[in-house]
Each structure stands twice: as structure tokens, then as C-alpha cells.
């Protein structure tokens, strides 16, 4: 009689152990899956289009700034006439980052004095090729750059 009781409680305990451990394991499987289903805060993955943390009004006419675009610098500037433009900012000579020169309204590389015009065309100094033009759009307040 006594063995039957212990046998019974042993079985109950085993069933409990089996249930909880399998249940906990299942939870440990489901937790990552549920977390996975919730999309991250960051914007969607895309190399061809990037929304910048820059307001269109932040860029005054005849000035520019460097912004990252898929790990590479891009020069975003407003021409003296007020048009927003974006060009790859990597100098085609030795890959330095170029800058906008307000006093001459051109794009200049400080490393070896390469000069580009606001269309990205190399006009003076060692750069062998023009900079690549990118599309710029203003969506609401934000500026969006896209591969042309």
C-alpha cells in the first residue's frame, strides 16, 4: 500500500517536472521568436535610400555638410541659388573627404587641392574623375538621399 503511494507521488512529481521543464523550454524558444516579430526602431534596411537626421532648413544657401550614406561620406550642400544637391564626398584622387567652399562656391579637397564645381565635375588639381551625383528629396522636414 505504502509503495503504491510513493510510486503514485513519484509519478506525479515526474509529470510535474516534465510539464514545467518542457513548458519553460518552449517559452525560451518562443521568447526570441516574439521579439523577432517586433521590428526594430531603426528605419528599414536600404542602401539605395537614406533618410537623414538633417532638416532641409538647417542647410543655408551656399553652405554644405558631410553626411554618412551607407558608411561613406556624402556632401550635402545648397548652392548659392538655393538648390539642394548631394555628391559623393570621396575625392576621386586619393579618397579624402571633400568640403564645400562658400567663398568660391565650389567643392574642394584639402589633401591635394582638388577642386570640383557644384555639378561634381573636376575642374582643377589632381582629381581624375568627377564626383557622383545623388538624388536629394525633401520629405516633410527630413532630407532623403538616394542613389541616382
Amino acid at each position: 500500500m505504502e509503495t503504491a503511494t510513493t510510486e503514485y507521488s513519484r509519478r506525479r512529481w515526474l509529470t510535474f517536472l516534465l510539464g514545467t521543464s518542457l513548458g519553460a523550454t518552449l517559452v525560451s524558444f518562443l521568447y526570441p521568436v516574439l521579439r523577432y516579430l517586433v521590428p526594430p526602431e531603426t528605419s528599414e534596411p536600404s542602401l539605395s535610400e537614406v533618410e537623414l537626421d538633417v532638416k532641409a532648413s538647417d542647410i543655408a544657401p551656399n553652405s554644405g555638410r558631410i553626411v554618412p550614406f551607407s558608411g561613406k561620406p556624402v556632401i550635402l550642400f545648397r548652392t548659392a541659388a538655393g538648390e539642394l544637391r548631394a555628391l559623393t564626398a570621396t575625392c576621386t584622387h586619393l579618397a579624402c573627404t571633400v568640403q564645400y567652399r562658400g567663398d568660391r562656391s565650389d567643392i574642394w579637397c584639402a589633401c591635394h587641392n582638388g577642386v570640383y564645381d557644384t555639378n561634381g565635375t573636376n575642374i582643377s588639381g589632381p582629381p581624375p574623375r568627377p564626383l557622383t551625383r545623388l538624388d536629394v528629396a525633401v520629405r516633410g522636414e527630413k532630407i532623403v538621399i538616394r542613389r541616382a
Binding site: L14, T15, L17, L18, S21, L22, A24, T25, S28, F29
Partner: peptide
């Protein structure tokens, strides 16, 4: 590590159950 502990526990419980 946590997940493996739970899996190990489940396996132990299963083995005990199979023995019965």
C-alpha cells in the same frame, strides 16, 4: 546558456519518464 539549461532539464525529465 539559460536555454541549454532548460533543454537539459527537459531531457532529464524525459529520460526519467522513459525509464518508467
Amino acid at each position: 546558456g539559460l536555454s541549454l539549461v532548460l533543454i537539459g532539464l527537459s531531457i532529464a525529465a524525459l529520460v526519467a519518464k522513459i525509464r518508467t
